[in-house]
Amino acid sequence: MLRSLSTVALLVLLALPGVASAVTGVAFVHGAGRQTDALNDYWKAEFVDSVRQGLPNPANTLVVNCDFEQYMWDSRAAGCLAGQLHGFITSRGITDLVVITHSNGGNVMRWILSNPTYDSRYPAIIQRIRWVNALAPSSAGTPLADAVIAGNVFENALGWLLGYQNDGVRMQQVSWMAYYNQNNLFGTGGRPALPKGFWNVVGTDVGSGVFSGNAYCGGYAQSVGLEFTQNWLAGCSDGFLNCTSQNAAGRLWFYDYQSTASGYVLNHNQSRRACFGLDTILRNDL
């Protein structure tokens, strides 16, 4: 209901004189890792190309490439993200920006939204954002980050998912994120609200059975790996994040099964893929 009210408010604003010529753009903000080709290595062109067809001008699309192996406030993380977002809205004349994030990308985006005086580019970015669609954001961290930093078997088993012992992983330890949420970030319980909507898509389970219809989208091996890691998480999780972490900041948009085709669940890998109509949902949202 809250999401619908926001949509109505947007339509009213776009109908006002001087706003009707709004130029809409979409930015895809990846999650973990040091990305140099996030379009192909993180999101896949099928997903991005499908979503951006919802734009009046599909060319108004940015796929961010930054180093999220760093702490969120680092110049190579939030600084890089701010530079690419600011350059995008300036060069393309974007006045209505929808940001789509995944996993740890939500934390870096929340840093910008929560700390407008930290960087001179932040206010212009915030002003132009319509809202952030956060796909499986790690807003309260994950026990798997604690396990990786502890140096046990997860360090190797989760290298493909989390990366190894870097600051971006260290930051996502549960107690560390609790500290940041209480002192540096907005949007969680008891903290000031974020200046723009931060809407969560929450993955609730992992399907990995050989005959499971939803196990193969995004890669069967990844589904099996996430089924394994789910053993260290709560009953409601996407194989990497507990549902409570995914919905710790901002507001719930929907749990996967509420909106996906056939009510399929989205594991942590599938929530950045064209799986079960997710791309269509995001496309229609533009």
Rank of each mutant, 00 (worst) to 15 (best):
G225T: 10
V201I: 12
E227R: 13
F186N: 10
D256H: 05
A261F: 11
V206K: 05
Y216V: 10
Q182H: 06
F228G: 06
T244K: 14
G207M: 10
N200G: 09
L161H: 07
Q230M: 07
V174F: 08
C243N: 00
G219K: 10
F211E: 07
N184T: 08
T204A: 06
A221G: 11
G250W: 01
D238L: 08
G263E: 08
F228T: 07
L161T: 04
L162W: 08
G163D: 00
A178S: 14
D256Q: 01
N267W: 04
V265R: 07
G263R: 03
D167M: 15
Y257K: 12
N214A: 13
G190F: 09
W160T: 11
E227H: 15
G263H: 01
G250H: 04
C217I: 02
Q173M: 14
A249L: 02
N183A: 07
A249G: 09
D205L: 11
N166W: 11
G187F: 00
Y255N: 03
R170T: 05
S259R: 15
Q165C: 14
N231K: 12
G189T: 15
N231L: 15
G213W: 13
S212L: 09
M171Y: 12
T244N: 14
G190I: 09
S208G: 14
Y164C: 14
Y257T: 05
R191V: 01
Y264G: 02
Y264L: 13
V206R: 02
S175R: 13
S262D: 12
G203A: 07
G159M: 14
S245R: 05
L162D: 00
A249Y: 00
G168F: 03
A234I: 06
G197M: 08
G207W: 08
A193L: 14
S259P: 01
F198I: 03
N247C: 09
L241H: 00
Q246N: 04
T260W: 00
A178Y: 10
A234R: 14
T204M: 13
R191N: 02
F198C: 04
A221D: 06
Q222H: 10
T204K: 06
A234V: 05
K196R: 13
D167S: 11
S259H: 13
N181M: 12
V210M: 15
V210T: 10
Q246I: 05
